[in-house]
Design a protein around this nucleic acid. Structure first.
Length: 407
RNA sequence: GGGUCAGUGUCCGAGUGGCUAAAGGAGGCAGACUGUAAAUCUGCUGGCGCACGCCUACGGUGGUUCGAACCCAUCCUGGCCCA
């Protein structure tokens, strides 16, 4: 088993570090430390885009370190301007609390929070009670505006306008790091490379106030080989919450990975050993198709567990290989709302298309099959002969399957 | 606070009184080819019993006009310049 640093290197998880690599190596491979990453609770669920830091924390915990997850109830009220060209919507307290709760549950699938082996902290605990005058007198002198303005993360906003509110985000995140450093002796902050400015701000703050050294490390920001942002699909983000993205869809997301990304994703998004992954790197072309299955299975397993991953894999096999679509996702619709309806109306009701107009277009273009037969007439009326054993199976395009259960 | 420019569909962005459901691009969806891949080519891409019709839409509200995304007033939001 390779040591942590080698593991990270092998998985291409290190982009920038505040110290030279050989020092980083002794830190990562050395005595247990506390390591922190922040998550913005702007949504009730994390999505695939959040996964890299989570995986890093998970690896670190396995190597004996202690992860600290900050769910930024305090900072989310500000909104991180990094990489955004417009100001973020402000959130109400209730949605924030709700979001924090959801995220906590998801993190615990990757990180063991029992017996304080890892901590989950809301930075509102301290940010919420700071006195403004007090705060700026204590922290303010350590930052110069000119330095801050030079930071990469503010650059794009210098054109479009940056509110003072958002400008403070960096300071608050630095203060988070400082607080954790003082309270928990947290020495390392990790995050996406877009967090680099915020991370070094924290490192500097600690050095200035305490004269002590803390470290920062970033992971590369992943774009898929087709240049699209990770974790976004037609339907929006791919969520970790099974209510928002079903395990089946989650599996399908990974299953549809581009050839050129398969090995890269295995390294980052699964716990498969590097040796094991190496076997796949020599594959090319059609052979890679089976590697995608493994990637999808492993990635799904981590988030949704073995049982759901098995189910998703089975369902996918049955649907795509055996042509048996009984395992496809299903919706239940009362018989009265099915018989006598047009196909287009049924599809809309089942959520396959968002409007009848769209359904009609798709059908006219040959994009819909019902019970395995291509539908050509959008106004076709559904009758009893279309129902097999209480089911109508619909297929949109090549790979979106839906069973309508008639109740 | 003063001056000035801007706010258009998922996003970017044209349009500056009727020819505008609104150019173009991106994104998305679908068809063909495939390996549940990529690339490529093609079609579609506000809603509705959706060929001809109706409704909703160009920051909000009110107005001018036979007719407004486009003109006027006012408000909101933002940029830039000045204080």
């Amino acid at each position: 088993m390779p040591q942590l640093f080698e593991e990270f290197k092998g998985r291409d998880l290190i982009k920038q570090s505040t110290v030279e690599l050989d020092r980083l190596k002794t830190i990562l491979n050395g005595d247990p430390i506390s390591v922190y990453a922040g998550f913005d609770p702007t949504k009730p669920s994390l999505h695939v885009g959040h996964l890299i830091p989570i995986m890093i924390l998970s690896h670190m915990q396995k190597a004996g370190h202690r992860p600290i997850c900050i769910v930024g109830g305090g900072t989310a009220m500000i909104g991180d301007p990094s990489g955004k060209d417009s100001m973020r919507e402000m959130l109400t307290n209730e949605t924030l609390e709700n979001n924090v709760r959801g995220i906590r549950g998801q993190l615990s699938k990757f990180i063991d929070f029992s017996n304080e082996k890892a901590l989950l902290i809301n930075n509102y605990d301290w940010l919420g009670f700071e006195n403004y005058i007090d705060f700026i007198r204590r922290i303010g002198p350590h930052f110069t505006v000119n330095r801050m303005l030079a930071a990469e993360c503010f650059k794009i906003r210098m054109e479009k306008g940056l509110s003072f509110l958002e400008f403070n985000y960096m300071i608050l995140q630095a203060y988070d790091f400082y607080t954790l450093f003082m309270k928990y002796n947290c020495q390392l902050q990790i995050g996406g490379d877009d967090q680099w400015s915020n991370i070094i701000a924290g490192v500097e703050l600690i050095r200035r106030i305490e004269g002590k050294e803390a470290f920062g490390m970033t992971n590369p920001l992943l774009t898929r080989s087709d240049g699209k942002k990770m974790g976004k699909t037609e339907g929006g983000a791919v969520w970790l919450d099974p209510e928002l993205t079903s395990p089946y869809d989650y599996y399908q997301f990974w299953r549809n990975t581009a050839d050129s990304d398969v090995v890269k994703f295995m390294k980052i998004y699964t716990f498969m050993s590097l040796d094991e992954i190496a076997k796949f790197s020599s594959l090319s072309g059609e052979e890679l198709n089976s590697a995608k299955e493994i990637l999808a299975y492993e990635a799904t397993k981590i988030v949704h567990g073995t049982i759901e991953a098995d189910k998703a894999r089975e369902a996918a096999k049955n649907i795509f290989s055996a042509g048996n679509i009984a395992d496809a996702p299903g919706v239940e619709i009362p018989a009265g709302e099915v018989i006598g309806e047009t196909v287009s109306a049924l599809c809309v009701k089942a959520g396959l298309f968002s409007s009848k107009g769209e359904a009609k277009r798709m059908i006219e273009q040959g994009g819909l099959s019902m019970n395995g037969i291509k539908v050509t007439d959008p106004l076709k009326i559904i009758d009893n002969t279309d129902i097999n054993k209480g089911l109508i199976t619909l297929k949109k395009g090549k790979k979106v399957f839906l069973n309508i259960e008639i109740s």
